[in-house]
Nucleic acid binder design. Structure first.
Lengths: 243, 243
DNA sequence: GCAGATCCTTGATCCAGATCAAGGCGGTTC
DNA sequence: GAACCGCCTTGATCTGGATCAAGGATCTGC
């Protein structure tokens, strides 16, 4: 499943970090690492290891012992939870700059799977925890971030519990757009690295309803469906639906 | 709305703490305070202030500036979020021992309302933050707790997105029972301090569906509806439904 | 004890979204 | 280029829970 490769392009592999390192890391300013001074960054870097995954690769699985935390530097990941009976729910999607393992539990509560070629900064959990224990402001930053995630989870609960299919889809598109903008990706078309089934499982809908809703929004010129994503044509309309 | 009274029983009111203080606090061991040494507890105590609220009183409201954090020592609280159009979603219920304001955001993201007579330990946010900044292991404890809450939020998302009415209600009853057990309240009857509408708004159902589902479970002898709560008669059956 | 309010239950009907059932459309393989 | 596969779309039908509409049960104040 998980394809842990080091130096995939045949580059040298001192800790898998052949490029500029943390200081030049393009997600540095949008990620947890922004809490650190350059000294600390160097220390963090020595703990980290660049790892890549192929599409469909598993970063980690639910109930598995949590041996590491991750910072995504490239690609997109889906985060899901399984019910004993096989139903699945996609808790969310992690993009460039997102940090996985915030809460640092003993065992993972979710499964993380690559949707595209993914590159991460991987930190051994023990070493990372030990660093955090010594750097209260890093912990502070993690905690703030956890609070933010809790707020997002609340938004998502409200969405799941109290809204119709069209509202859900519109809100999903806008939220994703917002996240891309935050990390500086403001392309005309909104990339959808996940499939329709993933969107359905994220919104508590079926794949057919997601497909139909997107088709309708397209027919009504609120969006334009393009290969690999959608173009958002009528933002005000979408905001009216999903806001 | 909020009825902030001090020494409601005519007792003396040094910081509203006329009883034994933190050391004898009955929620001490199940709350965040369990992270503290007795010295620290004393320091915490000097920051705290006992406050009571009448049923329907507001502890704090969504979007309001967050001026304090709270530890519930008596009663039950509903936590809700409003949509601009007036729909509401009950994010959860806080019971004895629960801590409100974990993430310590600038502004509250939810509204907290007393369901019964409520007593809390109230800490000024500034002072509490300053204490946390000096006590990394308290922050550590808060962060662990936030991680736990995040896990609960995920459970709730799964519930909202992927389950039918009967599953939702059964799961709600079992979860609540689990929480009562954890804080040492193992009465035969499960108290339901919240109304049917609150349960509905928590589970993404209507009040009619909640009422009908409870009635059906009662008719089928899985539960017994009693004033102020329910008795869980057939736990295995409920677990099969809600598990 | 009665008027009113609040909360809960029950029944009848409706509808959004699920389910069932075919295709369609681009890749990939050989 | 034919066969296959993994996705996505579209149509027809069904259904669980929403909505609409009455009551009933408690409690509160007077």
């Amino acid at each position: 499943m998980s394809s842990e490769t080091c130096a995939p392009n045949g580059q040298s592999c001192r800790h898998g970090r052949s490029e500029g390192g943390c200081a030049e890391c393009k997600v540095r300013l949008v990620s947890v690492c922004a809490a650190l001074t350059s000294d600390e960054l160097a220390e963090l870097e020595s703990l980290s290891r660049r790892v890549t995954y192929n599409p469909r690769g598993t970063l980690f699985a639910q109930d598995e012992e949590a041996s590491a935390v991750y910072n995504i530097t490239e690609g997109a990941v889906r985060l899901l939870r399984l019910l004993p009976d096989g139903r699945r729910h996609v808790m969310g999607f992690a993009l460039v700059g997102d940090f996985l393992g915030l809460a640092m539990p003993e065992r993972h509560t979710i499964t993380a799977e690559a949707l595209s070629p993914v590159t991460v900064c991987r930190f051994e959990r023990r070493a990372f925890q030990e660093l955090v224990a010594r750097k209260p402001h890093l912990l502070q930053r993690l905690h703030e971030r956890a609070g933010y995630e809790l707020g997002l989870a609340q938004d998502q609960m409200l969405l799941l519990g109290r809204r119709g299919a069209e509202e859900k889809v519109a809100s999903f598109l806008l939220t994703l757009r917002g996240r891309y903008v935050r990390i500086g990706l403001t392309s005309v078309t909104l990339e959808l690295p996940m499939g329709r089934q993933d969107i359905a499982d994220h919104l508590g809908l079926t794949i057919e309803t997601v497909s139909r809703t997107l088709t309708r929004l397209d027919r009504e010129k609120a969006i334009l469906i393009v290969p690999g994503g959608v173009r958002l044509l009528d933002l005000p309309r979408l905001e009216r639906l999903g806001g």
